[in-house]
Amino acid sequence: MKKYLSILTMQIINNIAYPGDFLGRSISIATFIFIFAGLWGTTFTIANTDAINGLTFPNMVWYFMMAETLELGRPRINRTISEQVKNGEVAYILNKPYNFLLYHFSAGLGDGAVRMTLNLIVGSIVAWILAGAPPAPLGWLMAFVTLIGAWILHFCFMALIGLAAFVVEETNSFELIYQKLVFILGGFLFPLDMFPTWLQNIAYALPFPYMMYAPARLFVKPDVDLFWRMLGGQAIWVTVFVFILAFVYQRSEKYLTVNGG
């Protein structure tokens, strides 16, 4: 376990090696929140209402802040794996005494921890200025608890896409499809509350809401029933995808070709 903690720490150190780049990243989240706050502000004004499907303007801005923190903070592990396969670096990752997937999980967590922390700080300042005080402490607590499952699920998807690089090398197209599914059915662009019931039902039957909607929605409107439902859903999907990932990894190892060999 110690070795994985060291990999995580090393990735954090690596991330803060360039403070300029580190701070520069925060500009994008500030810009996105500013634009979305403008769009939602106009929508609420035109609709002449305080709440749409139970969510107020401050709810929307803080929801988007949490969703954007996740989206921009999650490391693109598939790109790392794909790059390592293409440039042959995967040879070094595979011949060390650690589990390949746990290595990427730890490195990704180190990377994500730095990015998400920074996004959360900058995003909260901007959201506070544009939409007023942040959600209640219970919202923060529920968001952080569901963030764990959301992160593991995201890792499973990214790693599955990354493992495709063992066979096809280039995985950008798979990532794009995945990203759009999270944007729509995961509730990134709009909270699922905005969808008609039939579309909500379809979304809930898939893993995507548990990766994005769960922490963002519970953050702005903490709800004990929803919290347990989301945790339950995450537990099921994490179990399913961890098994799929382990199986696919075992199979794909045999197909690996390392460039430059």
């Binding site: 090393m10 150190i13 090696a17 042959g88 670096e89 040879a91 070094y92 011949n95 430059g260």
Partner: peptide
């Protein structure tokens, strides 16, 4: 192992 054309040392550190 050393693969002469690939780095194993962390590049920025």
């Amino acid at each position: 192992t050393v693969f002469g054309q690939r780095p194993q040392l962390w590049y920025h550190l």
